[in-house]
Design a protein around this nucleic acid. Structure first.
Lengths: 132, 132
DNA sequence: CGGTTATTTAACTATTTGGCTAAATACGAT
DNA sequence: ATCGTATTTAGCCAAATAGTTAAATAACCG
């Protein structure tokens, strides 16, 4: 798959709020299709198709556990976006400052805790309260 | 406009390779619609509509110069994407090394001292092959 | 004013997308 | 084998999208 097609697919996948919400849920950890479907008012087949789109976009991958197909985030798609964005970050000046302060923090902590940027990483917390 | 709608629009806009190419061109500087259209095999009205989509997505803005409507990048949309991505960056560990080496390069390039605040990042050709 | 250039709007068509329901498939348990 | 649960495929429809050409608008030029 060409880089260009992959980006087409990834951005297109991210353009749908239901799919972004699914991704937000998956950021908390692997789950079954049913569990993923719960918060939404749409049919299971609809969810199934959203998942196919996300998978095709390199945003999730799927395993097999009995009759379930647990989904988890695949970072490939996100990294693709991040990399694409890299070209443009120089356009809004803050990059250096941000990187600088981030690095400062890291050095101060010397490999102790993982990124302490903006939000905290709640492993268990249910509310990822995104309106997303 | 809700955050969610804005993201829908931005991601949808970025899902089209023509629009990404337009953005890549605009990263080099402001231009007229005609100039923007040149590299493409599609009609001017088609370009015009792409521009409308990009504008609506907060990715470009337009001025007026005689009968031309020069377009330039609006960082708002890109920053929106970057911010959305922030939630997910923790999922792929590489951040430290990458930031580290990036900063290293920057320091090497603009004379000894670490760029304290807001040093504008020089354009240094290099890296990222653009297939877009 | 009338002409030329730059860009947009209108009207139409083909394709894609997202949703639905009903039916099919895949496993595990009985 | 048959049943029950989990998920996908099929077929249908409505709305959105990307392209087209032709016509409209906007601003400058003589």
């Amino acid at each position: 798959m060409l880089d260009t097609d992959r980006l087409n697919a990834t951005f297109a996948a991210l353009a749908d709020p239901t799919r972004r919400a699914i991704l937000a849920r998956l950021a908390l950890g692997e789950t079954s299709v049913q569990k993923l479907a719960e918060p939404f008012a749409i049919s299971l087949p609809a969810i199934s198709r959203h998942l196919k789109v996300l998978e095709h976009a390199g945003l999730i991958s799927r395993g097999r556990d009995a009759q379930m197909r647990p989904c988890k985030i695949d970072t490939a798609g996100l990294i693709g976006v991040d990399h694409w964005l890299e070209e443009y970050r120089k356009l809004w000046g803050q990059s250096m400052d941000k990187l600088e302060s981030y690095l400062e923090v890291m050095k101060a902590q010397q490999g102790a805790a993982p990124p302490k940027k903006s939000r905290s990483v709640k492993r268990q917390g249910a509310s990822h309260g995104r309106k997303d």
